[in-house]
């Protein structure tokens, strides 16, 4: 059966050990995690975990059910086929030799990202977007020489009814 990418988001109790329960469930049952993001929400005591996973339909069904079974998981949603917005962010430290400096800034402009740190031989670029945008940007920057990169996983929210 075909494995598709799924973005699963859940509200969990903000308590010690909860992340471990969620991650342990994935490792213990052989589910895959491509990326993972966790942070507090506006509701005191609740955090949101967003997990990107690759799985076939029966496995996705199990992932959702198993997550729901955890006592500290309040709500689970698979956003893959929902009307939702998804973003990730990356900080990219790129080599900025004199002959590339202008080109890099043009790319930054086109992609509407920001340079947040400048040195004699580097820029650090902050970029936000969906996965496709980040990949495209990295493909353009790679020839200049990427020194370091830090990348978040996907975060996502379902759109409110208009």
């Amino acid at each position: 059966m075909k494995e598709d990418k799924h973005v699963i988001t859940m509200l969990v109790d903000n308590e010690p050990g909860v992340l471990s329960r969620v991650v342990g469930l994935f490792s213990g049952r052989g589910f895959n995690i491509e990326s993972l993001c966790v942070a507090e929400t506006v509701t005191p005591g609740l955090s949101r975990i967003t997990i990107v996973t690759k799985a076939n339909p029966p496995v996705v069904e199990q992932i959702e059910k198993q997550l729901n079974k955890l006592i500290n998981v309040v709500k689970v949603r698979d956003l893959t086929h929902q009307d939702s917005v998804m973003r990730e962010m990356a900080l990219i430290c790129v080599k900025a030799s004199p002959e590339h400096r202008a080109e890099i800034l043009r790319i930054v402009d086109i992609f509407r990202c920001k340079v947040i740190d400048v040195g004699l031989e580097h820029y650090i670029i902050e970029v936000t977007g969906d996965e496709g945008k980040l990949t495209a940007l990295l493909n353009l920057l790679r020839p200049m020489g990427i020194k370091k990169i830090a990348r978040t996983g996907t975060i996502a929210l379902i759109r409110e009814p208009k």
Partner: peptide
Amino acid sequence: IDPTSIRK
């Protein structure tokens, strides 16, 4: 009673 048992 356990939804995870169904279709597992």
